[in-house]
């Protein structure tokens, strides 16, 4: 799986929804995730990509959409 597919799998798992929003669409405004799912999303990303996201990077904007998540993670690789 490429990074985009890995992120999509995590969003499906955390949202408990087999559908996906558009890559640039807000995961929150679209209703796929609520505020309390965001910490779960971050934990799953850390586990899947084998990284520790520092508290200073825990800005919700970095995790707003699948495109933004991919951009952030690839900046860490």
């Amino acid at each position: 799986m490429d990074n985009k597919e890995r992120i999509a799998a995590i969003v499906r798992k955390v949202s408990n929804n087999s559908a996906l929003p558009d890559p640039d669409e807000s995961l929150f405004d679209s209703g796929f995730l609520d505020s309390f799912a965001l910490p779960d999303l971050v934990c799953e990303l850390e586990r899947e990509f084998g990284i520790k996201i520092p508290d200073s990077d825990l800005n919700p904007r970095k995790f707003e959409s699948m495109t933004r998540i991919q951009s952030y993670l690839e900046s860490r690789m």
Binding site: F28, F36, L38, P39, D55, L58, N59, P60
Partner: peptide, 13 residues
């Protein structure tokens, strides 16, 4: 209040 930020930071800190 940026609820997402508060929850994200609090749930870790």
């Amino acid at each position: 209040m940026n609820g997402r930020s508060v929850i994200l930071q609090a749930s870790r800190k």
